[in-house]
Computed example of a mutant assay.
Amino acid sequence: MVDRLERLVNLVIALRETRRPLTVDQINQRVAGYQGERDSAWRRMFERDKADLRALGIPLETEKLDRFDETLGYRIDPKDYDLSPIALDPTELTALALSVQLTGLADEAAPALDKLAVDANLVGEQRVQQRVPLELGMDAPNRAVLTDALLAKQRVRFAYRSVAQTATAATATTRLVEPHALLHWRGRWYLRGVDVDKAAERTFRLDRIDGEVRPTGDPGVVDVPDVPPDPAEVVPGATGEPIDAVVDADEATAWQVARRSSGAGVPAPDRDGAGVPAPDGGGAGSWRRFTIRTWDPDELIGWLLTLGPGVRLVGPDPVRNRLVEHLDQILAEPVPVAEHPSGAPS
């Protein structure tokens, strides 16, 4: 059974989306909540629903089907019903983002704020193209092999780079691991298990594994815990001390940074103490400085890179150095060349 509110919503959607007026028969056949025998009770219900919609200010129109058909139908003209686009300038968007943050609903409101930015033409084609595509999906290399090893209770061997080895480009170390769980934490996959050579439990990031994971030994030899560990307790840095990162943002990007900041921000100074001019020639003071508290510097760096040239990471130095490492890796990767249908590079 469809309740009254759902029935009214279904009716509004049907009449808003139709190009030609819908007759009573068509409403009876197509709209959930109105199907059934068209007796006097049905007719009274429909008349009451029409009156309620009009009382709510919804422009429900009665029109002829066309100039050759005198039959009447019902329709809601989108031009009369839809709200006009909301145009907020960057300062207003930043204030709104900070206000939402105070409610504790910043994550839930993020899609709506993004939509407002698009409506305000603050996320144009050029800015989108400049973003670095570092969004991490739900999949990761070797996850299928590790899942099979977990199910088979079998050891695995792989080459792994720790944080220090990654930073210094040192040779990866071969690890023999008894897998206990695959964990997903803040956009990354981790393997939790026993490092056999060190006889201790360790957590390994899947994106730091070099090459392929190879199952080794007999199945059924690994004692897999019944309850997987909490990622917040075993992922490195998840329970560490928070880091306060200082980020400068231009006028068009400030609202996005403000969503995660611990304050309203201040005008960003340059070396002489004056406001930082915008890259497009804007006046001093168009950039603002924010402080963002994070427990995961890599996640913060990945997010900042998606914002493109509209942000600058000021500090602290260890986080800046990690950002430089990320950028060096991106610049070192070859850029694919698209081919023209004729076969020539475009």
Rank of each mutant, 00 (worst) to 15 (best):
N10W: 03
I13S: 04
I13R: 09
L15N: 03
R19P: 01
V24L: 11
V24W: 00
D25Q: 14
D25K: 08
N28W: 00
N28H: 05
G36I: 03
G36N: 03
E37R: 07
R38Y: 00
R44Q: 11
R44M: 04
R44N: 03
E47Y: 00
R48Q: 14
D52S: 09
L53V: 13
T62H: 00
D69Y: 01
G73K: 01
G73R: 01
Y74P: 03
R75S: 08
D77H: 08
D80H: 12
D80P: 00
L88W: 06
S99H: 06
T103W: 03
G104R: 11
L105Y: 01
A106R: 10
A110Y: 10
D114G: 14
K115H: 08
L116G: 07
D119W: 06
V123I: 13
D139C: 06
P141Q: 02
P141R: 01
N142Q: 13
R143Q: 14
A149K: 04
R155T: 15
R157K: 07
R157C: 09
A159K: 06
Y160G: 01
A164V: 15
T166H: 04
T166N: 09
A170Y: 00
T173N: 08
R175I: 04
E178C: 02
E178I: 05
A181P: 07
H184E: 12
W185I: 02
R192E: 11
G193E: 02
V196M: 10
K198Q: 13
A200T: 14
E201T: 14
F204P: 06
L206G: 11
D207H: 08
D207S: 09
E212Q: 12
P215E: 05
T216G: 04
D218G: 02
V221C: 07
V221E: 15
D226N: 05
V227E: 14
P228V: 08
P231S: 08
V234N: 09
V234D: 11
V235L: 04
P236T: 11
G237C: 10
T239Q: 14
E241K: 11
A245F: 03
D248W: 02
D248R: 09
A249I: 10
V257Y: 00
R259L: 14
R260H: 14
S262N: 07
A264H: 03
G273L: 12
A274N: 15
P277G: 10
P279Q: 08
P279A: 12
D280M: 02
G282S: 15
G283A: 15
R289W: 04
T291Y: 00
W295F: 10
P297V: 00
D298Y: 04
D298E: 15
I301K: 06
I301E: 06
L304C: 12
L305I: 10
T306H: 02
P309N: 12
L313A: 13
V319C: 08
A332Q: 13
E333A: 15
A338Y: 01
E339F: 08
P341S: 11
P345V: 13
